[in-house]
Design a protein around this nucleic acid. Sequence first.
DNA 1: TTGTATGCGTTATCAT
DNA 2: ATGATAACGCATACAA
Lengths: 363, 363
Amino acid sequence: MTTMKEIAERTGVSVSTVSLVLNGRDAGRVKPGIASKVRKTAEDLGYRPNPLARSLRTSKTKILGFISDEIATTPYAGRLILGAQDAARSMGYMLLTVNTNGDVELERHEISTLKQYDVDGFLYACMFDRAVDPPDSLEPLPTVLLDGTDKRGRLASIVPDEHRIGYDATRRLIEAGCRSIAYIGAGGEDLPKVSGQVIADRYPADVLREQGYLDALHEAGRETDPDLMIRVSFNRPALDAVSDLFDRKRPDGFVCFNDARAWYVYLCAAQRGLTIGRDVSVVGVDNHRLVSDTLAPELTTVDLPHYEMGYWGTLKLVSIIEHRTPDDAALPGTRSPLPDLSETNAMIHCTLLERHSVADPAR
Amino acid sequence: MTTMKEIAERTGVSVSTVSLVLNGRDAGRVKPGIASKVRKTAEDLGYRPNPLARSLRTSKTKILGFISDEIATTPYAGRLILGAQDAARSMGYMLLTVNTNGDVELERHEISTLKQYDVDGFLYACMFDRAVDPPDSLEPLPTVLLDGTDKRGRLASIVPDEHRIGYDATRRLIEAGCRSIAYIGAGGEDLPKVSGQVIADRYPADVLREQGYLDALHEAGRETDPDLMIRVSFNRPALDAVSDLFDRKRPDGFVCFNDARAWYVYLCAAQRGLTIGRDVSVVGVDNHRLVSDTLAPELTTVDLPHYEMGYWGTLKLVSIIEHRTPDDAALPGTRSPLPDLSETNAMIHCTLLERHSVADPAR
DNA sequence: TTGTATGCGTTATCAT
DNA sequence: ATGATAACGCATACAA
């Protein structure tokens, strides 16, 4: 690890000069000849600043704390983490990740530890796009919520556009010529739970996707039929409910909340000798990547590139925490900055790719 | 964030004394009265050392770099990361996670960045338990491989006990009274790939689970039958192959490499009016948690608690990197330490939970 | 038994 | 235009 000191020695200047040059603060302060010489030897030696030592002075580590509860164990979490990492890297940040297993006490401790490591801010990963009440101990560091919104409306958040998912899926079936399109949602005992606690009577994603389904039908001038919309949980009851729907309404298109629900459609179709993709069409969000991995392309026409794994497929987190002075221009492509969240004039800039939306408390 | 300085001021001693006491180096060097006073005010102020500042002197950050390629996007990765984090936390480490997307150039850069952050060592996460050739740039920091082994036999690694998975699954069906047990493996175009490149002609996990299946049968005095063992990929060809097996051999038990393969068994059974759990039994590794989430317990008897999500369910990574002097006693429950891997007398201690095994180059 | 001095790599202030 | 120098929080050799 080459240091500024070495560069200074090799160039025959002082460390201060090296610091000035390498931080781009040499305009009119360091002779251009010297400056370029410093830059060259830095390059030659492969110099990279030590962010930890730097943080001792600046108290900016370029490290973000990534906090997740159970999310880390779910199949979609990987891509969430991936997106966050990609975004962080592209802006020169690193992610220090912890998980709390839904344990409040542990969470408190982990947050404290992250602060110990002088993180510049937090990424707080939730589930189900639900309204959460993030712990006060996150303050005063800037924080962005992922797949969840702040109950108190203080923190910025990034959530997928669930309505659009339901809408697009339904459009697809309409355009494919389906005449009778069903919606298979989640229900029964399958309720959104966080560490064993039921936190709502329906999955927010299910509600929104269903609404997208309804809106697409309306927009196309179709009738909507409550009998075509069911909510099932798992196992035999779910299979029975879907079977009943098959025989009672004979739909030729299915919008499924997720692959778990699509599963029963496949089984029912198989039991009746129907072929998916010919006799009936199924579109659903493939949380687990199982349907698309195993039955596509022949048996299904699942193709929702903008969501991919459904929940978090292309959610590229590009919300990042930057400390800037208030008079800095907003970064290109960003939305209006949020109000300051710390004494150091910290601001949060949120940018959004694809069709995911960002909740901006400032509006 | 309270510092040693504050404690020193409040206690009326110097920072050095505080440092001595708080690091437990006060035996016979600091008056017990002073020492306890220091400890008390440290407690009162909620002092926690700044590991970054400390690292400037000790060059030990208590941070481990967690490097993964595509693994982060797969469904089982979440639990791997979880296990690593839990283990790290329990030993006072944090994880700085990066992903390389299988890009060698990016990998080089990320490793360099991690070194910049002065990580104490690396966790190098692989896939498929394959033999890999980790980049030289990891050196000289101690490194542990996850779900992969070192081609050159230098690095320690942790891998799941795949043979045991196949063995247990088969035993279960034998004990359930199945008379004809099939093995559905992976084959065809479904080859282990890393960033698009085929890296073997079969999944190592598949090979090992299949061997476990064979060994369980032999041990039970059963005949093995090559016709009962097939390897399928996806879609129609897979379905056709399983259908053929169903009709040709009429097995009443199935050991499936993974849930994707079990899927076809379910479909075939449904098409024939057979009920899983009564007419035929299926045991498989549920990578995606879809089978167990949706069809258990009524339709399946999948119950392999020691593997849970199959690959990485209970793989609690407790292999951790510790810098210790050579004369330190081995930690309780650890295996024999590996040879030093750096100039600083670094050693790697590996402990193992459940039935996963650790490859120990020192043996 | 305790305090002082020094250094880790960096930034920032202030002389020169 | 450049270079000492101090400071960030901590550890440690050495002086007292």
